[in-house]
Design a protein around this nucleic acid. Structure first.
Lengths: 225, 225
DNA sequence: TTTGCATGGTAACAATATGTTTACACAAAA
DNA sequence: TTTTGTGTAAACATATTGTTACCATGCAAA
């Protein structure tokens, strides 16, 4: 299924950074557009309706955070992906503290490889959410409605629970290592204990009322009826 | 599928940092080596051929960036992973870091947890080589599912059992010495008794219900139908 | 605001699967 | 026969996971 190239808007006031990112993302097959300050970012976002916006925090006219807030207040950009570029650690913590509605953060200095991997990861995540519902045996998983059904009866899962189940069910039978699960569901930077996975697995098993998740000791978990 | 421990070279002129990183990564099971300036880093890299090099930017003799450039110019280090350690706000090194082809960066002050998570993430990304499934006669061995099938019936093996079987089956007919088996499945550091292999072999034979592993007395074992 | 609830993370402990060693029987070779 | 190596079962130790309870947080309703 061939889709149109994803449109990416980058806003940063440093031409070097802009150029490097543009070069790398273009090479990956994206349609890349640029803006060099906050106001231009908003303006171009409106005319381009990009799939992803990469915002530097420190920009003239409007900061990335302000841009994000402006955009998020409009329904058009409700689902647009936004990545923040941050230079400083305290910026990072500041952002994370705030409810900014960004989908990811990348700190400077930017490694093109890391950025690309984050971008593709984000698009992949979105594709999954848009992907049609999974149906394995008597279990239905509908990312669009964020719902799971067992024997056509609705089961309500919390966010993390759902994401975890969806990940496992996306490749039934395949074993997911604990590491894989952590980075896919929790992200690479977030550090949580090992027991966390167990607890969520348990909750899923409990709520679904059937044993569709198999433990592979010393390795990970897999979805299996 | 125990692979040899990944080799990591850390270069930093601050002994404290070096020690903290070394301690944490060693505890994670990596083989860790250190260097305290740029020249030593290059030298040790050449003799060790590490899988990952962690370079502080600010070092005597040669900066991390220079080290990176030197190494990257050689085909041997073309695919070696490189992580930069950067102090905050170091704009210059940021820009140059981008051009030198580092795979990731971690900013100081260093959180061991974050560093470890980045390191494992990097290795995982590189490790796309998931073992291939084997199929010998009526036996199927699928590392992705961590499953063995005999006549299309699933057989559940424990981790070590699976790894052992996978090793033997990877080269049917070939005899693996007890030493080889130990180092491949258990690793070089771990010391276990001789009977341990026997016991696992026995469990595999038992679970598979057929004799596909042949004993070569005084030598080792081989997989054979 | 306060309250209550849902969520998610963690610690502590229990339960269980797995791995290792021991001990000994047996078979083959010297 | 003696020696050496291997198979087997059971005991033991350990690692891994399951489970529960508790706390912090955020959010929504009152």
């Amino acid at each position: 299924m061939q889709t149109r190239p994803k449109r990416i808007l980058i806003a940063d006031d440093e031409p070097d950074i802009l150029e490097i990112i543009e070069y790398n993302l273009t090479r990956e097959g994206y349609d890349v557009y640029t803006a060099k300050d906050g106001n231009e970012a908003i303006e171009r976002a409106k005319q381009l309706n990009p799939d992803l916006i990469i915002l530097d925090i420190m920009m003239p006219k409007k900061t990335g955070i302000e841009v994000c807030q402006v955009l998020r207040s409009q329904t058009l950009f409700q689902d647009t992906l936004i990545i923040f570029l941050t230079a400083l650690n305290d910026e990072m913590s500041q952002i994370k503290g705030l409810e900014t509605g960004a989908d990811d953060y990348v700190s400077k200095p930017i490694s093109p490889k890391v950025l690309i991997s984050r971008v593709t990861a984000l698009f992949r995540r979105i594709n999954k959410e848009e992907g049609k519902s999974l149906s394995i045996g008597n279990i239905g998983i509908d990312p669009a409605r964020f719902m799971v059904t067992v024997d056509n009866k609705d089961v309500v899962l919390a966010k993390k629970e759902f994401e975890l189940l969806y990940l496992l069910a996306s490749k039934p039978g395949r074993v997911f290592l604990r590491n894989e699960i952590l980075s896919q569901v929790w992200g690479t930077d977030i550090i949580v204990g090992d027991r966390t996975i167990d607890v969520h697995i348990r909750k899923i098993r409990q709520k679904l009322g059937l044993d569709c998740i198999t433990t592979v000791k010393g390795v990970g978990y897999k979805f299996e009826l």
